[in-house]
Simulated assay, not measured.
Amino acid sequence: MDGLLKDKVMLVTGAGGGIGRDIALAAARAGAAVVVNDLGASLKGDRENSGAADKVVAEIEAEGGRAIANGGSVSDPDAARQMVKDAVEAFGRLDAVVNNAGILRDGFFHKMTYEDFDAVVKVHLYGAFNTSRAAADQFREQNGGALIHMTSTSGLIGNLAQANYSAAKLGIAALSKSIALDLARWNVTSNCIAPFAWSRMTSSIKVDSPEQEARVKKLQEMKPAKIAPLAVYLASDRARDVTGQVFASRNNELFVMSQPRPVKSVHRAEGWTPETVADHAMPALRAGFMPLDVSGDVFSWDPI
């Protein structure tokens, strides 16, 4: 297969279904050999379908592409190193990693357990670190590579009852930026995608009001396959000068997201006291405050 990823090798984690599956299929159609990683876990992280990766491999091979399956957990550093090893042993190199694997254990913060916080952070944030760190040595040896991480507007903006998921996803954005800075000298790029799509991850959204029902209907119109073109592009040589960015993909819309920067400042020559902070600084800075909004408040218009 010819395309933007001809002769390249891509590892896609959590590729047994949803967004990961569509990225793996699109990468293969663009010419890449693909390592399809999937633990075969439920939405909460329990093992339930160990053959998920094999099915996607079969789909790729049926279309004339090349792929192998890997069933390791991204939360395990040794398993992440094995994913990279599998790619190199099977195809001779590794050119791109898509950190897509994830689980959800939603709950309001005052009810969230340590175990549920830990499990989600381990898969999303530690998982992105583990696979990226394993790939970094190979990329440095090859003098090039691409890392594509799935973040979320739950972390970039905010959402209710997702403290664990939001913390991990915002952490991934910071991790990606640090990787972009540290590995630039070896021509390694690192970018994030915040995907809007109806998948297993979003299917857990509770529908307990007319507003939530309307939101879910909008999400159901956004297909996982819509995310794949951006991921394929970011893995290609056409994106060599694109790094350290956070993108969002929403149906037929693509966005580049802002990153935290100072928006307003105040100065007092003699320094500050708690009283002058209250009387001077806060009134002056208040115009720059961010509202207590959620992702749906910011992306309030219908998908295009």
Rank of each mutant, 00 (worst) to 15 (best):
F129C: 05
V120N: 02
K8T: 11
R105G: 00
S295G: 15
G72F: 03
I205V: 12
A80H: 02
G40F: 05
S295K: 11
N159C: 13
V98N: 02
P77D: 10
I19H: 05
A28D: 07
E275N: 12
F255K: 08
V36Q: 02
A135P: 00
N70R: 05
A26P: 02
G65D: 11
A30R: 00
A101W: 02
V121K: 04
D95S: 09
N159A: 15
F91V: 03
D22K: 05
E48A: 09
N159Q: 15
N37M: 03
M290D: 11
W272S: 08
S152H: 01
A87L: 04
S199I: 04
N159G: 12
E48W: 06
V121W: 01
F255N: 10
Q162K: 10
M1I: 13
Q162M: 14
M150G: 01
V35Y: 01
K6F: 04
L160K: 11
P260M: 12
T131K: 00
K111F: 03
G158Y: 06
I148R: 00
S190H: 04
T131F: 02
G158T: 13
S199G: 08
F289Y: 10
L125V: 06
A136M: 06
V57K: 06
M112L: 09
A15H: 06
D118L: 01
F109Y: 04
V9K: 02
Y165E: 08
A235V: 06
F299E: 13
A62Q: 09
G71C: 11
G17A: 10
D46L: 14
G14W: 01
V84C: 04
K55M: 14
T13H: 04
L5W: 05
P260L: 13
P303R: 11
V97A: 06
D302L: 14
K206I: 15
R185H: 12
A136Y: 04
A67G: 09
E89S: 03
R185D: 14
S152L: 04
N159E: 15
S190D: 06
A52C: 05
A32P: 06
G102S: 00
F247K: 12
M290L: 14
A278C: 07
N159R: 12
R240H: 10
M282R: 12
Q138R: 09
A30M: 07
N100F: 05
T153D: 14
I19N: 01
M1Y: 07
K218P: 05
A15Q: 07
V34R: 02
D54I: 03
E61Q: 15
T276D: 03
I304F: 14
V98P: 00
L285Y: 04
T131C: 03
Y126G: 02
L4D: 09
V294R: 05
P210R: 08
K6L: 10
G145M: 04
E115K: 01
D182R: 08
V277H: 03
L156A: 10
G64L: 13
L219N: 15
R215D: 13
A167D: 04
